[in-house]
Amino acid sequence: MSSSTLPESTIPLLTSLTSCRQWRQQVRDDRISVGFVATMGALHAGHLSLVRHSKKANDRTVISIFVNPAQFAPHEDLSTYPRTIEQDLRMLEEIGGVDAVFLPGMKDMYPSGIVQDPERQRGTFVEVKGYGSEMEGRSRPLFFRGVATVVTKLFNAVEPTRAYFGQKDIQQALLLRRMCSDLLFSHPEPQNLHIVPTERDGTDNLALSSRNAYLGPEERKVANTLYRALSLAKEGWESGLSKSGCIASARDLVEGIRAETGVEMRLDYIELNDSDSFEVVGDEKTEVDYGTRPVLLSGALWVGRTRLIDNLILGDPALLGILDSHVEGKF
């Protein structure tokens, strides 16, 4: 990103790989810890929660803003994805700032070039075999290939001591932790990739997302339908209802709200998956051992032209390394 096109900011802006590495070398020389939050911009309170957790635990915090073409399929919303750099920087300043914002250019991130069509892509990509094709990966083939590739590049550039990702994208966070283990990352080590609880709207529990900005007024009124459906499924599962019964009740709730409001909605999926393998769990509650690892109850719902995702944890979130949600709001 060209520095000439950026708004003024009190936060140091690292607009190239070279400037990022120079900043990181200085921090390394000072032997202090670095926390890292990777984003595509259009920041909201969920991103700020990640920043707050990082600032609490690390000497320095850096956030990246880069809209990654490799995680968008050819038909997806790359060109219309919200880009709000001036607002993003202002939000960071209002919570006390971060120590640097990394704003890499496309050439820095993809030296061999990048196109949105995976069939025409050339260069080096990272794939977490067998795990990226489950859950979200079933609906968005090659999505996690794009995520794993760009996060590998960002980790190599920033070399964070700790990194922070949101529970809303639970499969992404767990998959990246596995990637750090499989590829022997030292910055961050797998146990230092932390997951922060989903930040929700205080009135209706809608999971905060940059894509919520796409919702029209009537769509926004029912955007918490997925959360309500997941909550109903969780209640049923914990009361002894079979998995198929839980999912059926969740689907019925979605269909009922759609019919009542007339808002266009389409359920992509609601499913229960093993938190280690991401494989679909069986129908009987006896097949799940909460004592070893929780189960992921997740879903995706189209509201109009906006695809929303959410999840709830069945079992103890701490077993997945999900942090306590409370941190101070100001620094």
Rank of each mutant, 00 (worst) to 15 (best):
D169Q: 10
S242K: 15
D204V: 00
L48D: 04
S210M: 02
G41P: 15
G256S: 13
T149C: 07
Y131N: 06
I11P: 02
T5S: 14
R177T: 14
M265I: 14
P160R: 04
S275D: 02
A207N: 03
V98S: 04
M1E: 03
D310M: 07
Y164L: 00
K234Y: 13
G236E: 08
Y164R: 01
I85K: 01
L92W: 01
S16A: 11
L226K: 11
P188G: 03
R60H: 06
T149L: 06
A250P: 07
S242G: 13
D201V: 02
A259Y: 07
S3R: 11
A163M: 09
L312H: 06
R220M: 08
L43K: 03
D29R: 05
K56R: 14
E218L: 00
A163R: 00
G113F: 14
L323S: 08
Q171N: 05
N205H: 12
M91R: 08
L17W: 13
R211E: 07
N156E: 10
M109N: 08
Y81G: 07
D324C: 03
L296S: 06
H326F: 04
P197N: 02
W237Q: 12
D201W: 12
L323E: 15
N156M: 00
K107L: 14
N192E: 10
V51S: 04
S9P: 15
R90Y: 10
V147E: 01
V327D: 14
K107R: 11
D59R: 11
I322N: 07
M109V: 04
F185I: 00
P217D: 14
T18A: 12
L184P: 03
L50W: 02
F66P: 05
E94K: 11
G132W: 00
R145Y: 08
S298H: 02
D99T: 01
K285T: 03
A148L: 04
V150N: 15
S244H: 13
L314M: 13
C246Q: 11
A259T: 15
H326T: 05
I95E: 10
F165K: 04
A73I: 08
Y227K: 00
L206N: 04
I95Q: 11
D182R: 12
V101I: 08
R31E: 04
D29W: 00
D274N: 14
P190M: 04
S277F: 06
